[in-house]
Amino acid sequence: MNDVARLRLLRSAATSAPVDDLSAALVAAGRGDERAFGALYDLTVRTVFGIVRRVVRDPAMAEEITQEVYVELWKLAPRYDADKGSASGWIATIAHRRAVDRVRSEQSRRDREVADGRRAVPDFDIVSETVGDDLERERVRHALGLLSETQREAVTLAYYGGHTYREVAALLDVAEGTVKTRIRDGMIKMRDQLGVTP
């Protein structure tokens, strides 16, 4: 196992020291350190590419967006404020946001759904199909397993499907308010289960 792989595993197993590495890499990158940015890339690219590809589905488009995400991260790095949240959370947020903005701004949504054959409700196993980050995957799998089926469906359609809650409501043919409630209740349970203190 190379150092990068070991770091990744460490990062998923423990939440303290390696995260600091990432945070430190981001701060150094913010001062124009390209090597530090390369290290940041190595630590995070699987998560970034994974979530982007999950949303847009097309691997070539996912790589293009992933590249845009990193260029954006490079530009924004001088403004990263470690006090405002974890570096990994910040990076995942930027990646997911960019992916959903792309699918919403383009016709690609239609193409994507045609490619899927039919309306795709991501099932629970969505998380187990992938290579994934073993430990993180297990934690998330477990946490998702504690949600009611309707909560899980709403959360995964929104996040992995890249849908707005209104779209989720239309897909499931339930009221928008119901979907909002399912999303909120599901996310609260996930947050409590994953031991995240706000």
Partner: peptide, 26 residues
Amino acid sequence: GYRAVTGSLAAAVAEEPSADLRSRVM
């Protein structure tokens, strides 16, 4: 708090991109 959850949701679907992406980015 929720962003920490979405960070985990993202990490759970981590996937390797093609090897030449790194040089394109850099």
